[in-house]
Design a protein around this nucleic acid. Structure first.
Length: 737
RNA sequence: GCUGCUGUAGCUCAGUGGUAGAGCGCGUCCUUGGUAAGGACGAGGUCCUGGGUUCAAAUCCCAGCAGCAGCUCCA
C-alpha cells in the first residue's frame, strides 16, 4: 500500500498502482477533472503517473502528495508546456516537413522553435489557433513513456527530427534514458510534466512570431519561434491582454514623445538621443542630485575629452575586444583606414580565415602611395609577421583616435598624471562621461539601448586593504540612489566570468579568483540577496549589477559596480606604500544610474510619465480663470519662478475646465487656479494632481513653502505600479528537452 | 547583424490600381468662463526613399533607409 500524506497533514493508504488522479477520484469526480498535475514530495509531476513509479520502491513513507488543480498557479507552467506541444502538433498538421527544436514555457506563456522553410506570419495565426482548438477539443491524453538512448535516437530519426537527435547526442549525452510524450499521433521528446489531456488546456492565444537561433548560438541555424500565451481561464487571458495593452502605454518611447522629453531622429543618426528641454530638465536635476552626494562621499569631479588615441584603448584592451561594436577610428593620415584594413586582412590571412593574394598587396601598396604613404620598407616577399610589423610601425607614427567607448582609460591617465602615495588613496574621480558605441541596429531600443550615452561614471583607485570598504560604500550609494526615486523593484546580480571560456578575459587566474571572492564576500556580509551568473563579467573584472525590468518585462542593467585588478596592471599604475616601495592600486568602476539615457528611460516607465515634484520638468502651472486676471497670474508665475519652481501659465482662451484637463493630462504635479477672488486676496487655489478633491486656498508664500518642502525632501508620492511588471514567472525555462 | 512585421497630416490611425480621410493637436475669430474638453471657421500631406510592372502606383513587385518584436550581443 501507498502511504500518502495530504497537504492537510492526514495520512491515508491507497493501492500501490494509484496515480494522483486516482486519489482525486476518491475525493470526487469534479476534483479529478480539475486536477492538472500533482506535487509529489515537492516535485511537480504528471497526475496520471503511478505515484510508485515517481518515487521508486525504496522511497520512505509517507509520500507527500498535493493535487495541483486548475485554480493553482503551479498548474500554469504545466498547462503552458502542454499548450506548446499542442501548438507544435498544429504546426505539423498545417505545414509539411517541420523540424522541432525546443518548446518551453515562459513567464506569460510558451513558445516553440521550428525549423520550417515556409515563413509563418501573423496572418497565419487564426488558422493555427483553429487547428490548436481542434486538438484541444479532441482532448486526447498526454502519455509518457521512457526509452533508452538508442531507442530515442531511432524514434527521433524515424520521425526525421534531426534537431532532437542532435540534442540527444549533445545536450542530453549524460542521460541514460529519455522520456517522450505521445499525444494522439504526435510524439515529442520531452521531460514533462503535462496535463492529463489536451482538453485541460483552456485559454490560449498566439502572440508573435520571430527568429531565434538553434541552441541560442548566432552561428547556428536560424529557426522560427512562435510565441503563445495560455491561462487557466478566459478571464485571466483577457486580463493579461488588457495589462499588456496598459503596459504599452507607459513605454518610455511613447511617453517620451507625448510629453516632449526626448527624440531620436534618423537625420541625426540611429541610437543618438536628442534630449529635449523637458527631458534635459529631468536629467540635469538627477545629475545635480548625485553630484551633491558624490561630494559628500569624497569624490572629485573631472572632465575628459570625447576621443582618445587608439593606442590607449589597445593598452586597456577595449579596442581589440570591442572593435566590432565601436565606431571606426578617426585617422590623421588619408591612408590610415587603408593600412588598418590591410593589417586586419593580413591577420585574417595568417589565421586562415581569408585568402590575401600578392596581387591584393600590390594594389594596396599602389593605393597607399597615391594617398601619400610610400611604405618603401614593406617586405612584399617577406613573412606575414614582418609585413604586419612594418605596417604597425607606420600606423603607430600616425594619429589614430577613437570616439571614447569607455571613460576608464582617461581616468587611469589622470591617476597616472602624478605620483601617488598610499596616503592619497582612495582617489575617486567622477565624471558624467559621454561614450559612443556602435551597437548593432537590431539592438537599439529607445533610450534603453543607444549609440551615444552618458555614464554617471567614476573610478576609485585604492589599496588592496581599502577595497572591501570602498566596495561596500559604493553598493550602498547605488542602493540609496535607486531608493531616492522609489526604485525598489530590482534584482542584484553578481556577474562572474565564464569559467569555461577564460580566454575571453584579461588578467591572471589569481586576480580573477581574488576579485570574485571579494565581491561575493561583500555581498554576503551586507546580507543582500543576489544571484551569481557566470559569463556576465566585464572583460577586465567581475561586476555587481542592478537589474530592472521595463514596461513589457525585459530586463536591463542599470547601476553597476565593478572590481578590477587588471587595468591597473595593464597601465602599470603605482602608488608609494608605507614601506616606501611601489605598489599596484586596485580599481573600482561604478555607475549608480548606469547611463543617463537608460536610467531616464526606465524612470519614465517607472513613474508612467508622472514624475514626482522634484523631478517634474514642469512643476507648477498657473491657470487664470479669465483674461482679467492674466496680470495677477503672471505675478504668481514670477514669484514661483523666483522661488526656484519650473512654472508656466496657461494663457489660452480655453475655459478653466479645459485648462485643468490639459494640465492633468500633462501630468503636472501642481496647478494654481487664480481668479478674481485670488487676485483680490493675493492667494492661489492649489490643486494637487494626485488629490484633486482636496484643494487649498493658500497665500502665495504659504503655497511656495508647501511645495518647497515637498521638493526638497525629494518626496516620491506615487509610483504607478505596473501589474504587468510584477507578473511572476511561472517556471521560466523549463526546457531541458 | 539575423528572422518577421510596419512606414499615410505635428500625434494616433482609417483607407483605395484612377481628385487623400478621421479624431486629437495647431491657427484665427467669437465667448470672459470657477476645477477633466464652450463654439465657429481655417491651415496643414513628396502617402519613408529609389527603381520596376502598368494607360495609370501612395496602393502591386524589388532594393535601400527607419521603426517595432524576438534572437544574438552589450566594456
Amino acid at each position: 500500500m501507498l502511504q500518502i500524506q495530504l497537504p492537510d497533514g492526514t495520512i491515508k493508504e491507497y493501492p500501490e498502482n494509484y496515480t494522483a488522479i486516482d486519489i482525486a477520484k476518491t475525493i470526487g469526480e469534479r476534483l479529478a477533472n480539475a486536477t492538472l498535475a500533482a506535487e509529489v514530495n515537492g516535485t511537480v509531476v504528471d497526475a496520471t503517473r503511478p505515484i510508485r513509479d515517481l518515487v521508486g520502491d525504496s522511497s520512505s513513507q509517507p509520500i507527500s502528495v498535493k493535487l495541483i488543480t486548475n485554480k493553482d498557479t503551479k498548474a500554469l507552467a504545466v498547462m503552458r508546456h502542454s499548450a506548446a506541444h499542442v501548438m507544435a502538433r498544429a504546426i505539423m498538421r498545417l505545414y509539411p516537413g517541420v523540424g522541432l527544436a525546443f518548446g518551453p514555457t515562459t513567464g506569460h506563456g510558451f513558445y516553440y522553435d521550428f525549423d520550417l522553410a515556409t515563413k509563418i506570419s501573423e496572418d497565419d495565426f487564426p488558422r493555427i489557433e483553429e487547428e490548436m482548438k481542434k486538438i484541444i477539443a479532441d482532448a486526447e491524453p498526454f502519455e509518457r513513456f521512457s526509452a533508452t538512448r538508442a531507442e530515442a535516437l531511432k524514434l527521433c530519426g524515424d520521425l526525421n527530427q534531426q534537431l532532437k537527435c542532435e540534442h540527444i547526442e549533445t545536450g542530453l549525452a549524460d542521460h541514460g534514458s529519455l522520456s517522450f510524450y505521445r499525444q494522439g499521433n504526435f510524439l515529442d521528446l520531452c521531460r514533462g510534466p503535462h496535463v492529463p489531456d489536451a482538453g485541460k488546456i483552456t485559454a490560449i492565444k498566439l502572440v508573435s512570431v520571430a527568429g531565434s537561433y538553434w541552441k541560442g548560438d548566432a552561428n547556428n541555424k536560424q529557426l522560427q519561434r512562435l510565441y503563445g500565451t495560455a491561462w487557466l481561464s478566459q478571464k485571466d487571458l483577457d486580463e493579461y491582454l488588457k495589462q499588456v495593452d496598459e503596459a504599452k502605454k507607459r513605454d518610455h518611447r511613447v511617453l517620451g514623445k507625448q510629453l516632449g522629453l526626448f527624440s531620436i531622429s534618423p537625420d541625426v543618426g540611429q541610437g543618438l538621443c536628442l534630449w529635449l528641454p523637458k527631458g534635459s530638465t529631468i536629467r540635469a536635476t538627477l545629475e545635480e542630485f548625485i553630484k551633491k552626494e558624490l561630494l559628500k562621499l569624497g569624490y572629485t569631479p573631472v572632465y575628459s575629452p570625447h576621443i582618445g588615441r587608439v593606442e590607449m584603448y589597445e593598452t586597456s584592451g577595449h579596442f581589440p575586444y570591442y572593435r566590432d561594436a565601436q565606431f571606426s577610428p578617426i585617422f590623421g593620415h588619408d591612408a590610415g583606414a587603408l593600412v588598418d584594413f590591410w593589417i586586419r586582412k593580413l591577420r585574417e590571412h595568417k589565421a586562415g580565415t581569408t585568402v590575401f593574394s600578392l596581387d591584393d598587396e600590390k594594389k594596396l601598396l599602389e593605393s597607399a602611395k597615391v594617398m601619400g604613404a610610400a611604405l618603401t620598407e614593406y617586405p612584399i616577399s617577406g613573412s606575414v609577421d614582418a609585413k604586419i610589423d612594418t605596417l604597425r610601425i607606420w600606423e603607430k607614427n600616425q594619429e589614430r583616435y577613437l570616439l571614447k567607448p569607455m571613460n576608464c582609460p582617461h581616468h587611469v591617465q589622470m591617476y597616472a598624471s602624478q605620483q601617488r602615495s598610499y596616503r592619497d588613496l582612495p582617489v575617486r574621480l567622477a565624471e558624467f562621461g559621454t561614450v559612443y558605441r556602435h551597437e548593432k541596429t537590431g539592438e537599439l531600443n529607445g533610450m534603453l539601448r543607444v549609440r551615444g550615452l552618458t555614464q554617471d561614471d567614476a573610478h576609485m583607485f585604492c589599496t588592496p586593504d581599502q577595497v572591501e570598504e570602498e566596495f561596500k560604500a559604493t553598493l550602498n550609494l547605488v542602493k540609496f540612489v535607486l531608493g531616492s526615486v522609489g526604485l525598489e523593484d530590482y534584482r542584484v546580480q553578481l556577474s562572474l566570468r565564464d569559467s569555461k571560456n577564460k580566454d575571453k578575459y584579461v588578467g591572471s587566474d589569481e586576480n580573477w579568483s581574488k576579485a570574485e571572492a571579494v565581491l561575493r564576500n561583500v555581498l554576503t556580509e551586507m546580507g543582500w540577496s543576489f544571484s551569481a551568473v557566470e559569463g556576465e563579467a566585464a572583460f577586465y573584472g567581475p561586476k555587481t549589477d542592478f537589474m530592472v525590468r521595463d514596461c513589457i518585462g525585459r530586463e536591463w542593467q542599470l547601476g553597476t559596480v565593478q572590481l578590477d585588478f587588471n587595468l591597473p596592471e595593464r597601465f602599470k599604475l603605482e602608488y608609494v606604500g608605507p614601506d616606501n616601495k611601489p605598489h599596484r592600486p586596485v580599481m573600482i568602476h561604478r555607475a549608480p544610474f548606469g547611463s543617463m539615457e537608460r536610467f531616464t528611460g526606465m524612470l519614465i516607465e517607472h513613474f508612467a510619465g508622472a514624475f514626482p515634484l522634484w523631478l517634474a520638468p514642469e512643476q507648477v502651472r498657473v491657470l487664470p480663470i479669465s483674461d482679467k486676471v492674466n496680470d495677477f497670474a503672471q505675478s504668481v508665475e514670477r514669484r514661483f519662478r523666483e522661488a526656484g519652481f519650473r512654472t508656466t501659465t496657461d494663457y489660452s482662451s480655453n475655459r478653466v475646465n479645459a485648462k485643468v484637463r490639459d494640465a492633468q493630462l500633462a501630468l503636472i504635479p501642481y496647478m494654481l487656479v487664480v481668479g478674481e477672488k485670488e487676485a483680490a486676496t493675493d492667494t492661489v487655489t492649489v490643486r494637487d494632481r494626485l488629490e484633486a478633491d482636496k484643494q487649498q486656498n493658500l497665500s502665495v508664500i504659504e503655497a511656495i513653502a508647501k511645495l518647497r518642502e515637498e521638493a526638497d525632501a525629494r518626496r516620491v508620492r506615487q509610483v504607478v505600479k505596473s501589474s504587468f511588471r510584477s507578473f511572476e514567472s511561472a517556471g521560466e525555462e523549463a526546457n531541458e528537452y
